[in-house]
Structure formats: C-alpha cells, structure tokens
C-alpha cells in the first residue's frame, strides 16, 4: 500500500492511497460520501487489500475538502468532486471505476463503473437532515427538515459534522444515481447489514472478501 499525491483542479494536490503494481485491471475507487465515508473507511481499504491479493490495482483519492485537503469543504460542489475524480482518473489511468454508496454520484461514465449499493443524493441528504432535526430538538429547537433545507440552500449547513455549502446541498437534492456504463452490486448480493448503517461498524472480513470477489467477477 502506498500513499501519494495527485494534481487536483481547484486545489493544488490531494492524497491518494494506492496498490499499484502496473497490472491489467486498475480500479479508481470512489469513496462513500460524508459520514458514510467514515463508516466505510476501514472496509474500503480492506476491499482494496483483497483486490490487490487477487491481482487488481486500486487507487483511492481523497476528495477536495476532505481528510488532509487544504481547501474548505463548504466551497465544494458535487460537480467539483466530479471534476476531481476525472482528474484523478487522468492521473492514475484506471481501467474501471469502483464506487461505494454516494460515490456513484461523482464517478465519470467514460469508464465502466461498478457501483456498490449506490445511494441517491436525496436519500443521503434526508438522513443527514433528519439527524440534524433530532439534534436541534434535543437542544430545544423546533426546526423541520424543510426549514433546514431552505436555510441550507442560502447559508449552507453543518450536517453530520460536515460543513456543506448551499450549492452542495442543492446538488445533493437533485443527484440521481447514474446508470450509464454502470453495473450494480447490491448489499443483498454481499449479505448482512450494510456497514454504512452503523456509526462505528465492527470490521467485517467476510463482507470485504465477498465484495472483492463480486467486483472481480464483474471485471472479467
């Protein structure tokens, strides 16, 4: 496993984690978004490790505004993230894209895409807005999801610990799962509960192995 930098538009450079041995199949891994990305972090790297063991190269770029990035998250839009993924793709030269959950929303369809349990922007936003409503209620406030969405579209909002700008919130509400050039792996194919559902998921080696195997099947 290596870490390295890649040139990202709108920022200077971002980090990426990779297993690169110059092999035939090279997957650009597009991480799950926001809190789901944190929940699936260990799982994502474990799937990459399994794919490496099966002879597949993988690259996991950080998105601008996340992790060690020097640009503020609240200035990012979904389109910026699409551009970032496209730039990462130009840099690493993958044969396929492999997306997890909301990562499907920012993949480039110029390559074949394998989507794991893809989620629409509206469903990600709905869960995060609802959590915010409940947190505010504990603090004695009575905002509804509609109030928060309205406010978010002008002022931005901190959701699930992430400061999202107005454009990102509007983008999410409208972001549908793309089907062009894509095949899907559903959670039902992997079996068990999706680890993004849990705030602090236990590691699940069986799910990581199964998902890696299902990805391999779709590369042939």
């Amino acid at each position: 496993m290596q870490t390295g930098l890649w040139p990202c538009p709108g920022s200077s450079e971002e980090y990426a984690l990779s297993f690169d041995r110059g092999r035939k199949h090279r997957l650009l891994v597009v991480r799950a978004l926001f809190d789901e990305g944190s929940s699936l972090r260990h799982f994502t790297v474990e799937v990459m490790r399994q794919l490496d063991a099966h002879g597949v190269d993988t690259f996991l770029p950080d998105l601008p505004g996340t992790n060690e990035s020097l640009v503020p998250l609240e200035l990012q839009t979904l389109n910026d993230w699409k551009e970032a993924i496209k730039a990462a793709s130009d840099h690493f030269g993958p044969s396929h894209m492999f997306t997890l959950r909301g990562g499907a929303l920012i993949a480039s369809d110029s390559l074949p895409v394998i989507q794991y349990a893809p989620a629409s922007g509206a469903s990600l936003l709905r869960a995060m807005l609802r959590a915010k409503v409940l947190t505010l209620r504990e603090a004695g406030r009575d905002d509804t999801r509609e109030d928060l969405f309205e406010r978010g579209q002008t002022e931005g909002l901190r959701l699930a610990g992430y400061k999202l700008g107005p454009a990102m919130i509007a983008d999410l509400q409208n972001a549908e799962i793309p089907h062009e050039n894509a095949v899907e792996i559903a959670q039902g194919d992997v079996g068990g509960a999706g680890l993004w559902l849990q705030a602090e998921p236990a590691h699940d080696a069986r799910q990581a192995e199964t998902l890696a195997r299902l990805v391999l099947e779709r590369l042939r």
């Binding site: 809190d35 469903s123 709905r126 869960a127 995060m128 609802r130 959590a131 409503v133 409940l134 947190t135 504990e138 509804t144 999801r145 699930a160 559902l197 705030a199």
Partner: peptide
C-alpha cells in the same frame, strides 16, 4: 448505540424497507 444519527438512520431505513413516510413531528 441509539444516538440522534442512529435514530435518523433507523427511521430512514424503516421508511425505505416498509415503504412508509415518517414526518418529523
């Protein structure tokens, strides 16, 4: 385990799996 983020996820999953809509109020 059931904090506000987990409650939000729980309600959203219930909506999706049972095809119902749960209002905030």
């Amino acid at each position: 385990e059931l904090d506000s983020m987990a409650v939000a996820t729980l309600l959203t999953e219930i909506e999706d799996r049972l095809d119902i809509v749960i209002e905030d109020d």
